[in-house]
Write a protein that binds this DNA or RNA. Structure first.
Length: 574
RNA sequence: GUUCUGGUAGCUCAGCUGGAUAGAGCAACGCCCUUCUAAGGCGUCGGUCAAGAGUUCGAAUCCCUUCCAGAACACCA
């Protein structure tokens, strides 16, 4: 258990013993550091409830405190200020030099499925996919650290209009192929296409279909045929999906995103009949489609019904999501399913979730949650595009950052090591920037700013770690131990590190990583200040040198573990 | 049109389950290298928290109104 949590429990017990019935007290980092490390504001709420003087309540609490605190004082109308004694801090933090277990508080373990990634098969990953990947992967790792049982699913968009687009294009390229011969019987051949080919074919088909209604009808027809299980088209499409999957996987690997399940919409297919059977009593026909009402009496906004079967008889993305949820319930029986997609899909997910509960597809005890995120914009405030206004592919985006980041690597580092460092640094830069703002906030993509050594950036973080690692490596001392922590710069670092537990829990509750990044920056910034003003290796006083080294090790350990949650790798030099 | 999200320093953003004097980064200006990676650190400047009214010991935070911006709103995902 973390020191903060343990202390809060103690305080809660203490206040109860005085005669106030409360279930928790918060130890808040002080907004007025000159009065102490922490403030306790409980006297105000109790005063309001009991109609007593907050100052009197504060005095009662203060008088009961034991000697784990020093500098206890009451300010203003009833602010209680306390600081931990150095002995308490040393004893606790000396146990935190390796690993992160002593710094965090685990709750009840839940089984949670995380649906993130969402790449479209047969189309290159683009900017929009990056946030889902980065946020989803980090949240997945965070949940694991907090003791949950997590399953991450890439949930590929491998069914839908792009299949019709690509097959119609292939038909124009190879009209004589057996896939288009209705009389063909036997094994369909292997197609000779690369992911690059598919990347060229899709936009070509898309442009044509958008300008030509007949072509669009053909696309729809092919899409519907796959939906209905057409052998030739399904075989062709599956091959296309496999071809592009390899490339998609490589990009996800670059981003350190590793999925437990590599499934997609097509995998939901076989569950759709069961889903329809269960939902049957709630389905009705509307404008040719089969829909399910999801409006509730208390709604004060339009809530259109969820379309389950289109008027052409084919499934739609909602149907596939329902099938996926059903399959997850059957196979894993999770406590929760979390979705990470663009915020613009929030109404859609609301519809799907309501349909699940209403029809009994999902039991009430299983929580379905959608966590939307904001868009990545250019400096003009509009979604980030290539110079000519096209969709920015994720790979190009990585290369843009890589060009910037290269400038920060020392010239003396060359060859494959340089390449390796550039790889890690560019992903770290991209991720740090991507996770820096609150999940729902749109942010401006600014490669130069992100790759800068100054400010809240990946390079700043990794550079600081490089210095710590170099220093720890040079240290001859066998013993790293906090012995003398009277130095204020040291104390500031230690107190900041105590926040880890709360920061992780807050990040979990809101499914956002910006709090973690903020903490990383604050710790490292305090460490840099300390590093600048103190000689660590050359410190003559044994106790001080051991303490300084222990602080360095503690900082490294904490930041290393936090970066691991964010799926950000480090380098040894740069 | 209805609903949702947002409006905080010149710029980019935190803070929003009400707490003491509203924060950070960048930019600008000024300091600190016989130094463990100065690729760093320190300082200064910078605010009607969109506007107005309300709730209370206390409001950037909660409620209401208005203005501005973005998004969603049935067979695309």
């Amino acid at each position: 258990m973390s020191l903060i949590k343990e202390t809060e429990k103690y305080l809660c017990e203490l206040v109860r013993n005085i005669g106030y019935d409360i279930d928790n007290i918060e130890l808040v980092p002080s907004s007025r550091p000159e009065f102490g490390q922490y403030q306790i504001n409980v006297a105000f709420s109790l005063a309001k409830e009991k109609h007593e003087n907050p100052r009197v309540i504060a005095e009662k609490i203060v008088n009961a405190l034991d000697n784990r605190f020093i500098n206890v004082n009451i300010q203003g109308a009833g602010f209680i200020n306390v600081s931990f004694s150095n002995e308490v801090l040393k004893e606790y933090l000396n146990k935190c030099l390796d690993g992160i277990d002593n710094l965090i508080d685990k709750g009840d373990s839940k089984k949670i499925i995380i649906d993130y990634g969402g790449a479209n098969a047969a189309k290159a990953l683009h900017v929009g996919h990056m946030r889902s990947a980065n946020i989803g992967e980090a949240v997945k790792r965070l949940l694991k650290v907090l003791g949950h049982d997590v399953i991450g699913d890439v949930h590929l968009g491998d069914l839908g209009r792009q299949s019709g687009m690509l097959i119609s294009e292939y038909k124009r390229m190879r009209p004589d192929s057996p896939f288009f011969d209705p009389n063909f019987e036997g094994e369909y051949p292997k197609i000779e296409l690369t992911a690059q080919d598919l990347g060229v074919m899709y936009p070509k088909a898309s442009v044509d279909a958008n300008n030509n209604p007949e072509r669009m009808d053909e696309v729809r027809e092919i899409t519907a045929l796959i939906d209905k299980g057409d052998k030739a088209y399904t075989s062709l499409w599956k091959q296309m999906v496999d071809i592009s999957s390899e490339v998609i996987k490589k990009v996800y690997d670059k981003l350190n995103c590793h999925f437990d399940l590599w499934e997609g919409e097509m995998d939901a297919f076989k569950y759709i009949p069961d889903v329809l059977k269960i939902m049957q009593p709630y389905l009705y026909e509307s404008e040719g489609a089969l829909v399910c009402d999801v409006i509730k009496e208390e709604d004060n906004r339009p809530m259109p019904p969820l379309i389950v079967i289109k008027k052409d008889g084919a499934s739609i993305y909602g149907t596939r999501d329902l099938g996926t949820i059903y399959s997850r319930m059957e196979r894993f029986n999770p406590d929760e399913i979390w979705y990470f997609t663009d915020e613009r899909q929030s109404l859609y997910f609301e519809q799907v979730f309501r349909a699940c509960y209403k029809t009994g597809l999902v039991k009430e005890s299983c929580k379905l949650k959608h966590f939307g995120f904001g868009t990545i914009n250019g400096k003009d405030g509009k979604p980030y595009k290539t110079r000519d206004g096209g969709v920015m592919e994720l790979d190009s985006l990585i290369n843009i950052i890589r060009d910037e980041v290269e400038k920060n690597i020392k010239e003396e580092i060359t060859g494959s090591e340089r390449e390796h460092i550039a790889d890690i640094l560019s992903i770290a830069t991209l991720k740090y920037a991507d996770l820096l703002s609150f999940r729902k906030t749109d942010y401006v993509f600014d490669p130069e700013k992100f790759a800068s050594l100054d400010g809240k950036t990946g390079p700043y973080v990794l550079y600081t770690l490089v210095r710590i690692k170099s220093l720890l490596k040079k240290a001859n001392d066998k013993e790293f131990k906090l012995l003398n922590i009277d130095n204020n710069e040291v104390l500031d670092i230690l107190i900041k590190i105590l926040e880890v537990s709360k920061v992780l829990n807050k990040s979990y509750e809101e499914a956002t990583l910006n709090y973690i990044e903020e903490l990383i920056y604050e710790v490292l910034s305090l460490y840099n200040k300390f590093y600048n003003n103190n000689q660590i290796l050359n410190e003559k006083d044994d106790d001080l040198r051991k303490t300084y080294l222990a602080v360095s090790k503690l900082v490294y350990n904490v930041i290393h573990n936090l970066l691991d949650i964010l799926a950000i790798d480090e380098v040894d030099r740069m």
